[in-house]
């Protein structure tokens, strides 16, 4: 079932739609949340993933398939929910994340995001993808190695070096 069909199903029968969405994307969201909530109990991770899909249930109509995809929408949603939960768990509920994103200085924030994107894109493929799979999507090294046909220690090495290059680029170095 493609994204359009799934969104249509969400409209017609949200519960069936969310079941199918969860069947496809729970793993994706779980790894993202797990990485962000590293060290927290498993039940917190599961509760958070559940909240991701509850938010999807409420917000799926916001998805614009001309610009994005369900996969992408859920990935960002999972990250946000995990950050929110982490803040609550660690007592750092100073600024709600949503507010942080939609608050003042949007231009500055966009520039900052672009700067990071440029730095990541400056890496060669697949190094840039490995970096994001590891640090955004929370994929274990073994899974990344299998996806790119690399050895696990090669993946770790590329991630380490990629991170160092990004650091230098962001600091203004080469």
């Amino acid at each position: 079932m493609d994204d359009r069909e799934l969104l249509q199903l969400m409209q017609k029968n949200p519960e069936n739609g969310i079941r199918l969405a969860m069947r496809q994307y729970t793993g994706l969201c779980y790894y993202i949340v797990q990485q962000k909530l590293s060290g927290q109990p498993k039940e917190e991770v599961e509760e958070c993933v559940s909240d991701v899909f509850l938010a999807f249930y409420h917000q799926y109509q916001k998805i614009d398939l001309e610009k994005g995809s369900i996969r992408c929408f859920l990935a960002v949603l999972a990250r946000r929910k995990a950050i929110d939960r982490l803040r609550k768990l660690t007592g750092k509920e100073t600024v709600p994340l949503e507010e942080g994103w939609t608050g003042e200085n949007p231009v500055q924030k966009q520039e900052e995001r672009q700067r990071i994107l440029d730095a990541v894109n400056a890496l060669e493929e697949p190094d840039n993808k490995i970096l994001i799979l590891k640090y955004y999507f929370g994929y274990p090294t073994k899974m990344i190695a299998a996806a790119f046909g690399l050895k696990e220690n090669t993946v770790d090495q590329k991630a380490r070096r990629g991170l160092e290059k990004v650091r230098k680029l962001l600091e203004g170095g080469a």
Partner: peptide, 30 residues
């Protein structure tokens, strides 16, 4: 830094292969 990314920044890095989750955990979350 990646926490601030939106769909716009992330769209070119989406994994082609979605990870599987053990069925017991997935069902519990569902």
């Amino acid at each position: 830094m990646l926490d601030t990314w939106t769909e716009e920044e992330l769209k070119d890095f989406l994994p082609e292969q979605l990870p599987e989750l053990d069925e017991m955990t997935r069902k519990r979350i569902e």
